[in-house]
Design a protein around this nucleic acid. Structure first.
Length: 484
RNA sequence: CGGGGCGUAGCGCAGCCUGGUAGCGCAUCUGCUUUGGGAGCAGAGGGUCGCUGGUUCAAAUCCAGUCGCCCCGACCA
C-alpha cells in the first residue's frame, strides 16, 4: 500500500500551481492525455480525452446557437488573395499571421490562397450572391471550422497555429437589428460560459485599440484564471456595413431603395479548453464541470482474492442503472485501485464510485467527490438519484468557487500607485476610471502590461471615478488586467 | 523578434566539465503472488546519443555550424 510519502512522489509529477503556473498547465494537459505536441510548431494533437471535452463544450454551445435561430453551414478553407485584400483594415489586422498556399501540386498558382485566419472575406463574398431582397434577411449562419493564424508564440489550447472554433456570420436589415444580434450572442456566450463551463465572466465592450480588425464594435466575455490573469473567452462583433460595402452585399428594401446589409460575427475557440483547465484545476490535476466532463462518474472496483467476478458483476449492474450519465467502468486488472484513484482525480472526473466486497454485502456504494474529496456512502437503490444530485452540486460549487475567487481578485481603485501594486502582488481584475483617451490606455499598457479588458455592460457608471492614468474625470469605469 | 532552457530507449532523465564497452527510473513483454489511495519478486526485449562537418588512434562527451522544440517577454482567439 502506498503511504503518505509515496503519494507525495506521485504529486510531484505535476508541478504545483504556485511553484510554476505555466508548467503546471502544461503538465496537467500532457499527463491527462488531453493534447500532445507534434513535430510542427504550434500544431498540437488534441487527444481523445481532450477532444471529448471539446466535443461536449461544442455541443453545449451548438445547442444554444441553434436555439437562437441560427443554422450551421460550411465554407471553404482557402481564401483567394484578391478576396482577402478587399477590406484594407481587416487585412492589415491579420496580414502578419496569414499562411499562404502558393502551389497546387508542382504548379505555381496564378493567385496565392490564404488559409482562413477567419472567414469574413470568403463568407461575405458568398453572401453578396445570396442577398437580393429584404425578404432574404436576416441571414443567420454559424460554422464550426479550423482556422490558421501563424503565431510566433504558441501555448497548448490558448494559442495554437491551427485551432478549432465556431464563427457566426449574420446579415441584417438595420443597424439596430445587427446591434441586437451582437448583444444577444454575447449574452449567449455569457450564459454558456457560466452554466456549462462553470466559468464566471465579465461581459463588456472592447476599446478601439482592442477591437476586431474591421469591426465597428467588439464585445467580449473575460474570465479570470487562477494565476490572476484574464482570458478573453469569446467575442461578438458588430461589423456595421464595412464588409457589406466592400463585398457588395446589397438588398432592395421595402421602400424600393437599394441598401447595404448590417452584419455581425462572433466566435469562441478551443481556447475555452485551456480556460476550463486554468479556472478549476488544482495540484492534483483537472477538475471538470459535470456538464462538459467526458466522464461524469467512474466506477473503480476493489478486489480481494476470489471476489473479482462478484465485484465486476455488481459494477456492471450498477453501471446499467446509471446509463443516462457518462459513466466509465474501470475494470482493468492491470492497475491497482489506488493507482486508478489518482489517475481519475488527475483527469478531473467529478465522481468516483467505489464498490468492494464489503459494499456488496451492505448493498451500498462509496461515492467520492472530486471537488471536496468528500466520501459518501450510498444505498444501491439510491445511487442514480444521488449521482444526479451530486453532479448538480459540483457544477454549482465549481462556479461559486470560481466566482468567489474572482470577487476576491477584483480591486476597485483610481489610484495609479495602488493599481501598480495590485498588479504586482494581488493580481486579478482592477476596476478603474478611464478618461477614454487611447494615450492613457497605451501609457498604462506600456508601464504595467495591463490592458483594458472591457468596458463592462454592468457597473460602468463613473460614480465620480477619475482616470487612473491622468486623473481627469472618467466617463466610465473599466476592467484592467494582465491577460493571456 | 529579444532572453533562457532542452534535444541520449515509448516517456522522464543521468552521463558531457576531465574523450576509452551507452546507463537509471517508469512504461512494455513472460511467470507467480497481490488489489479499500500510484503493489512485490524473478526474468526479458528495446538506442544510427537531433543533424552536418571538424579535431583525435578513439567523440554522446571537445570545436564550428545547423535544425527543431519548450518556457519567459514585445504583437494576437
Amino acid at each position: 500500500m502506498a503511504r503518505k510519502g509515496e503519494e507525495k512522489e506521485f504529486v510531484k509529477e505535476l508541478t504545483p500551481k504556485n511553484v510554476d503556473f505555466s508548467q503546471w498547465y502544461v503538465d496537467v494537459i500532457r499527463k491527462t492525455d488531453m493534447a500532445d505536441y507534434t513535430t510542427l510548431k504550434g500544431c498540437m494533437v488534441i487527444k481523445p480525452y481532450g477532444y471529448a471535452l471539446w466535443e461536449n463544450i461544442r455541443d453545449q454551445l451548438d445547442m444554444r446557437i441553434k436555439a437562437t435561430g441560427h443554422k450551421n453551414a460550411y465554407f471553404p478553407l482557402f481564401v483567394p488573395e484578391s478576396l482577402l485584400t478587399l477590406e484594407a483594415e481587416h487585412v492589415e489586422g491579420f496580414a502578419p499571421e496569414v499562411a499562404w498556399v502558393t502551389h497546387g501540386g508542382n504548379e505555381p498558382l496564378e493567385e496565392r490562397l490564404a488559409i482562413r485566419p477567419t472567414s469574413e472575406a470568403i463568407i461575405c463574398s458568398i453572401y453578396a450572391k445570396w442577398v437580393q431582397s429584404y425578404r432574404d434577411l436576416p441571414i443567420l449562419i454559424n460554422q464550426w471550422a479550423n482556422v490558421v493564424r501563424w503565431e510566433k508564440v504558441t501555448r497548448l489550447f490558448l494559442r495554437t497555429t491551427e485551432f478549432l472554433w465556431q464563427e457566426g456570420h449574420t446579415c441584417h436589415r438595420t443597424l439596430e437589428e445587427a446591434q441586437a444580434e451582437t448583444e444577444k450572442m454575447l449574452g449567449v456566450y455569457k450564459e454558456f460560459a457560466e452554466n456549462a463551463l462553470a466559468m464566471p465572466v465579465i461581459h463588456g465592450e472592447k476599446t478601439d485599440s482592442e477591437k476586431f480588425a474591421g469591426a465597428q464594435k467588439t464585445y467580449t466575455i473575460e474570465a479570470l484564471m487562477a494565476d490572476g490573469k484574464a482570458l478573453q473567452a469569446g467575442t461578438s462583433h458588430n461589423l456595421g456595413q464595412h464588409f457589406a460595402k466592400v463585398f457588395g452585399i446589397k438588398f432592395l428594401d421595402e421602400d424600393q431603395s437599394e441598401k447595404y446589409v448590417w452584419q455581425t460575427s462572433w466566435g469562441v475557440s478551443t481556447r475555452l479548453v485551456g480556460g476550463v483547465v486554468m479556472t478549476h484545476g488544482d495540484d492534483s490535476g483537472l477538475m471538470l464541470p459535470p456538464v462538459i466532463a467526458p466522464i461524469q462518474a467512474v466506477f473503480v472496483p476493489i478486489y480481494f482474492s476470489s471476489s473479482l467476478e462478484a465485484v465486476n458483476d455488481k459494477i456492471r449492474e450498477l453501471g446499467e442503472k446509471l446509463s443516462r450519465f457518462r459513466v466509465e467502468l474501470d475494470l482493468r486488472e492491470t492497475q491497482t485501485a489506488g493507482w486508478k484513484f489518482n489517475e481519475w482525480e488527475m483527469k478531473g472526473v467529478p465522481l468516483r464510485i467505489e464498490v468492494g466486497p464489503k459494499d456488496i454485502q451492505k448493498k451500498q456504494a462509496v461515492i467520492v467527490r472530486r471537488d471536496t474529496r468528500e466520501k459518501i456512502f450510498v444505498p444501491e437503490e439510491q445511487l442514480a438519484e444521488k449521482v444526479e444530485l451530486l453532479l448538480k452540486e459540483i457544477q454549482h460549487n465549481l462556479y461559486n468557487r470560481a466566482l468567489a475567487f474572482r470577487n476576491e481578485h477584483t480591486t476597485r481603485t483610481d489610484n495609479y500607485e495602488e493599481f501598480k501594486d495590485v498588479l504586482e502582488n494581488k493580481k486579478g481584475f482592477i476596476i478603474s476610471g478611464w478618461c477614454g483617451s487611447p494615450a492613457c490606455e497605451q501609457k498604462v499598457k506600456e508601464e504595467t502590461k495591463a490592458t483594458i479588458r472591457c468596458i463592462p455592460m454592468e457597473g460602468r457608471e463613473p460614480e465620480g471615478a477619475v482616470c487612473v492614468a491622468c486623473g481627469k474625470p472618467a466617463p466610465s469605469k473599466v476592467y484592467f488586467a494582465r491577460s493571456y
